[in-house]
Amino acid sequence: MLIPIEGTWCLILGASSGMGRAVARAMAAQGANVIGVHFDTAAHEEATAQLVDELRGHGVEAHFFNVNAASPAVRAELVPRIAELSGGTGLHVLVHSLAFGTLVPYLPRAGWERGITHRQLDMTLNVMAHSLVYWVQDLVAADLLPRGSKVYAMTSAGVTQALPSYGAVSAAKCALEAHVRQLACELAPREVAVNALRAGVTPTPSLARIPEHTEFVDRATLNNPHGRLTRPEDVAEAIVLLSRTDSSWITGNTIGVDGAELYAAGGAWNPHRADAAG
């Protein structure tokens, strides 16, 4: 059954920038209350305060916490807070949008003196993939993912594409998609839907941290058959849309939100191509 999301609560992990931020804005615009977890230095303080003000401007509650979402201590502290804030009703939406990992190759190569360390690889997998499982475990234990609620995790085309610096993140995205399928099955009796969203190449602060981003942003811009890159707002809109139901039948998927970028054959859809061919 289609339902309004007004008055529901959503928890966004990675809420201060990029996709998480866009989802926070879109959900608040629809009347949903937002609990945001982000981890930033003080230089970002004003921007986050502005975002919170903007969300509250929609007449919803917005509570942001500047803490490490991948830390067990932080989870232990926040889960009771979420119960308290939502008045025990729990969450309708959980968004995992944690883009924090180590962007170095596995082996030393030109431009990189050292390959990835054990600790860096563990950290990347833990933050970008395993933390989804731990959050779901704790939220379920606290009865904060009721029937009809939705869990979304952000994956990327990088699961099947290799870039020199992206090995650990690619591995994390593969693990994340596997976690999504497993959680979808385990949460089916509770009628909670779990899906991964595979955005196209999207200009965000996290994308800008990938050393090779200039090259593939240029290529993706030419390659996307829509003639533009994915925007964080495209992803936010997909989440709003998929959350307007209490059905859990769309679950366990990796859903492309990329304007068909993944399937467009290299260069064939470049709008300038016809001109070039005369």
Binding site: D40, N68, T117
Partner: peptide, 12 residues
Amino acid sequence: EVDSLMALEITV
């Protein structure tokens, strides 16, 4: 063996 997440933890 501090990684970038621990460095951010220290900074914050």
